[in-house]
Design a protein around this nucleic acid. Structure first.
Lengths: 348, 348
DNA sequence: AATGCGTGTGAGATCGATCTCACATTGTCT
DNA sequence: AGACAATGTGAGATCGATCTCACACGCATT
């Protein structure tokens, strides 16, 4: 704990030079004492430490970073912090970063490639080495390729990019989607709708693939009229759901690819007077706090959110401080949490 | 847009020196051309710009910062990014910061004073000037006082601190709470419970005060048995609610001071078999997505969340770039959103 | 006495961008 | 012709921390 004496307060922060002068040694010696390397006399070291304490010396991380070429900051580029999924991940990364005396810069790409590129460039010009990115696009990833070629530690989360060989942490999207659809099929559903966001997005494509495979495996031909695409916001999802269920022969069940879309579907059903699970069954990808507050509670495919950020941060710090090693690709399993939003369908 | 030619990729970023050498001028001239100040010949400037373009010069913000004493980064210390209230604010600040070519560092104080202090110190040693803080404590604010004395731009959000004269953005907590309680009283309730978090926290105290005043104004004596205190998490709120409603004479209505506690109360009522609004009426402070998904929908005191972050960021940039001006204290009004969780009480 | 090593210290270069100062040119005015 | 501005440019200092190098001194070994 520090004490601040009056009159000392408005001072500029003490520099190493100040400390050295106060302890009557050179800057070099002061640095040696404070960072404990090289030879320093015991008594001298003592004097330097006292001086540093006295002056409240904290060091200028900027100058340090300029010298050694990197700033102890992790750059984190996510889709949107407002998505609870990313918020949780960001929080976990921050905690782990703090433990390693790193700070965390968070940027939102808002799912725009251009924004992702410019954010990354901006952070690189800050000499930040060490990024955790949820890549927006699967193509045009020269900016990520460049990072890797420059040997900048990089961990991708939530989404994996083809042809980029680097650490990544994601979940088994296809398997998760397949489990959901298989369950719906087992409950007697055959006309199963899919509410999906931009196919540019990796997770969305994988979940679509799981959806299709499960149908085909059960001998059901995928039908484009059962699929509705919208942006991943509650509002857009409402419209897309309404479109899907205004057809002459609507689906008897719906699978939504993320929690915002699940919420949209819920609202759409309410406004259309469609009741769950009586009129339609629903499964969402990604658990969310609301899912257990509704009546009935919503069956979801849950991801181990708490492990994703943690794993990503661990991988990153391994790269930052450990020796070079081949990239690791982590995939977590998902879990189907059966609650009350799916009912058995007896007739077709 | 840049193009990256092969073989050029793994290079270290180009420095001003490189650009100068390439354009056959001194570093000083190159700097003048790129930052357009002082006298530079037209043709020389042209050459420098071409060289910069060619080499992909981006400048080292670290070196710039070291020189001019500050980094174009805003430090943002919040209670927790996982709280949607703060997530929204962080998002809005980030957008505005990006517009001003600033980046945003987010730190979680986790409502620990010590953590807030150490985060702030860490960010200051990065030469960051410009903070937006949701202060944890009302006392022991020497760290904030020091910032102000050092003339570091600071904006407090959500909470105001006594005796600190600086910009702040908050809402009318007392008025909001009063409106809620007055409405409950008007609906015939007299035994009104309060579910509150740590009284250390500013907003909590103000909301308590509004609660008490409304009661007194209506001639009802505040009763400590109607108040339950817990940490602001869903789990703690559940326990606190159960305690409150296990009394012989439980409240007929409950007012919760934030959205996490409202959720906790909701879960507690469900587990106790207490139905809303039949058995008990409920009003929460702070609107949240879940509030309209429950049946009945929850009546809340809504804050203009989207304006808080915006206003805070605006104030901060005024201070960062504009001339000195007296501190501004902004207080937004709250709005009672009447939905379905309050019923009229006929007998006492 | 000469050489060598272990220990302790300081002067100065370095990281990259910027800014002050001094020095050139040119042109213009008495 | 001489003086003085306006214009253009470069050398070097600066920000703060760190690291290399060189130089001390003492003590032990040949």
């Amino acid at each position: 704990m520090h004490t601040f004496e009056k009159g000392e307060m408005a001072q500029k922060p003490a520099t190493l030079k100040d400390v050295a002068a106060f302890a009557n040694v050179s800057r070099a010696t002061a640095a040696r004492a404070l960072n404990s390397y090289g030879y320093v006399g015991d008594e001298t070291a003592q004097r330097v430490h006292e001086a540093a304490e006295k002056l409240g010396y904290r060091g200028n991380r900027l100058a340090q970073a300029l010298r050694n070429g990197q700033l102890p900051i992790i750059g984190c580029i996510l889709g949107d912090i407002q998505n609870p999924f990313f918020a949780r991940i960001a929080h976990d990364i921050e905690v782990l970063a703090r433990g390693n005396r790193y700070n965390l810069i968070i940027g939102s790409s808002e799912e725009e490639l251009e924004q992702e590129v410019s954010l990354l460039a901006s952070l690189q010009s800050l000499s930040i080495r060490g990024f955790i990115v949820a890549p927006t696009s699967d193509e045009n990833n020269f900016h990520l390729v460049r990072l890797i070629e420059e040997n900048v530690p990089l961990v991708l989360i939530d989404r994996v990019v083809q042809g980029i060989d680097c650490d990544s942490v994601a979940v088994d999207n296809e398997g998760g989607a397949r489990k959901a659809i298989e369950y719906l099929i087992a409950m007697g559903h055959r006309r199963i709708g899919l509410l999906q966001d931009d196919t540019r997005i990796f997770t969305s494509r994988e979940r679509l693939s799981g959806y299709q495979r499960a149908l085909i495996a059960a001998g059901i031909t995928p039908d484009d009229r059962m699929i509705s695409i919208s942006q991943s916001t509650v509002e857009h999802a409402i419209d897309a759901t309404i479109r899907l269920f205004s057809q002459k022969i609507p689906p008897t069940a719906l699978f939504t690819v993320d929690s915002l879309m699940t919420q949209g579907a819920l609202l759409a059903f309410r406004s259309m007077g469609i009741s769950i699970p009586h009129d339609v069954s629903l499964i969402g990808f990604d658990d969310f706090n609301l899912a257990t507050f509704t009546d009935p509670q919503i069956t979801v495919v849950a991801q181990p959110v708490s492990e994703i950020g943690l794993a990503a941060a661990r991988l990153l710090f391994e790269k930052l401080s450990g020796p070079s090693r081949p990239p690791k690709q982590i995939r977590f399993e998902t879990k189907l949490l059966v609650r009350g939003s799916v009912s058995r369908r007896t007739e077709g």
